[in-house]
């Protein structure tokens, strides 16, 4: 079943729904995602009862969540759904109450990309620890420079009775005075989005 056919079927089911074909998938608005997914899952024709994969992609202007749906009973698929949300306020309704398989994958996408899946029962970081700042898979994320000590480290070490060499201490102080963070340098992502 190609995307165009699915699109016409969905449009007849939900009149006036904005659907756009992007690549192999259908681009939906965040507000339509749950009802479309429920229809695909429960309608006798599609029976897309198996949500295989949820991926978040950073396209610089916006974040995108990609869903791959398959049917276990009919052995058809995939139906690819896409939802785009702005970078500064990424909110997408959660699919956990429809598909349990979304539980960890949405947490993963939240952890790595920072998309908030609203309605998720337990949206916490899954791989990084609580209190970690930033989203490592976003294209503008810079990891820390691990070969220099910062002022927090110096304070911590001295609190634990470790003598910090003077030059490290001086460097950390200078860094703090300049208001800088020790971050690794990374080439800028210059490539265009799909």
């Amino acid at each position: 079943m190609n995307p165009a056919e699915i699109k016409t079927k969905l449009e007849s089911e939900f009149p006036g729904i904005p659907i756009q074909i992007v690549g192999e998938g259908l681009l939906l608005g965040p507000e339509d995602l749950v009802r479309v997914a429920r229809f695909l899952k429960e309608s006798g024709e599609f029976k897309m009862n198996y949500l295989s994969s949820i991926t978040a992609v950073d396209y610089l202007e916006h974040l995108e969540s990609v869903y791959h749906l398959y049917s276990v009973d009919q052995r058809t698929g995939p139906v690819v759904l896409r939802v785009r949300v702005p970078r500064d306020n990424p909110r997408i309704p959660s699919l956990v109450h429809l598909f349990r398989s979304a539980e960890f994958q949405e947490r993963e996408a939240y952890d790595m990309m920072g998309i908030r899946y609203e309605g998720h029962p337990d949206l916490r970081r899954i791989f990084m620890w609580e209190g970690f700042e930033g989203y490592p898979l976003r294209k503008d994320y810079l990891p820390e420079n691990e070969d220099v000590l910062e002022w927090d480290d110096v304070e911590w070490l001295e609190r634990h009775g470790v003598t910090v060499p003077a030059e490290y201490k001086q460097y950390a102080q200078d860094l703090k005075a300049a208001g800088k963070e020790a971050r690794a340098e990374r080439p800028k992502p210059g490539a265009e989005a799909v």
């Binding site: 994969s53 991926t55 992609v57 349990r100 398989s101 960890f104 994958q105 490539a191 989005a193 799909v194």
Partner: peptide
């Protein structure tokens, strides 16, 4: 599963692994 997005350069724009171990652990 591997989900790849290519932007036409030598590096993938997005590379995602659908890890069975992770998802089987949901239950």
């Amino acid at each position: 599963g591997f989900y790849l997005v290519s932007d036409g350069t030598a590096q993938p724009w997005r590379y995602h692994v659908r890890a069975p171990s992770l998802i089987n652990l949901t239950v």
